Simulated assay, not measured.
Amino acid sequence: MTPISAVDSAPEYAYARRVEADVWVDDSLAAYLSDGEALVGTVIARAIIERPQASHFLPDADKIIEVMAEEAQGSDYSEFADDFPTVSDEAQKELEALLEPLKAWADRHCSVSFFSVTQPEPYTVTATDIAAAEQYRRDEVQRAEAACH
């Protein structure tokens, strides 16, 4: 399987009300603060997002061969399929190479919206953060008004 890894070099952050939170939001800080509940000096939590690549969820060559065996065992041919499939090391390596374009396809076209967080830490809201949140709120109102017209 493809390891879970960060795609970007700059960390992507999630926010929560406290470090021990079970639910984290991957909105921008401005969007997160735009509800107006936090003031300058409020301590919230920030953590680094670890978002898996879509290819992490594709079967590897071993799993594909295992599924082929299971399908054969569940088919009308099951009594003759005891050693199916018998795959050489060379053939398994070929299958692994054939999976690379499929992994690339999955990473390009299958958006991963879920994530876990690491390194949760307290974060103190600054005046700049509040100003950005207010600007975000104004921009959202303008977008909503424009959508209505």
Score class of each variant (00 low, 15 high):
1 M>K: 08
1 M>Y: 04
3 P>K: 08
6 A>H: 09
8 D>P: 00
11 P>N: 08
11 P>M: 02
16 A>N: 11
20 E>I: 10
21 A>T: 05
22 D>M: 08
22 D>P: 00
23 V>G: 08
26 D>T: 07
26 D>Q: 11
29 L>S: 00
30 A>L: 07
30 A>Q: 00
33 L>P: 04
35 D>G: 14
36 G>Q: 04
37 E>M: 11
37 E>A: 14
39 L>F: 08
39 L>A: 14
41 G>S: 09
42 T>R: 06
43 V>A: 09
51 R>Y: 01
56 H>E: 08
56 H>D: 04
57 F>R: 02
58 L>V: 09
59 P>Y: 06
59 P>M: 10
60 D>W: 06
61 A>G: 04
61 A>V: 05
62 D>I: 01
65 I>V: 14
66 E>P: 02
66 E>R: 05
66 E>Q: 06
70 E>W: 07
75 S>P: 03
81 A>Q: 06
83 D>N: 12
85 P>V: 03
86 T>E: 13
89 D>V: 10
92 Q>F: 03
93 K>F: 04
93 K>E: 12
94 E>V: 06
96 E>K: 15
96 E>N: 07
97 A>K: 15
99 L>G: 11
101 P>I: 12
101 P>R: 07
104 A>G: 06
106 A>F: 04
106 A>T: 03
107 D>G: 12
107 D>N: 09
107 D>E: 07
110 C>N: 03
111 S>K: 10
114 F>S: 13
115 F>H: 00
117 V>K: 11
118 T>F: 02
118 T>E: 12
119 Q>E: 14
119 Q>G: 09
121 E>P: 00
122 P>M: 03
123 Y>R: 01
123 Y>Q: 04
128 T>P: 00
129 D>A: 02
131 A>F: 01
132 A>F: 07
133 A>R: 04
134 E>C: 07
137 R>K: 15
138 R>E: 13
138 R>Y: 05
138 R>N: 10
140 E>Q: 15
140 E>Y: 13
142 Q>W: 11
143 R>T: 02
144 A>I: 05
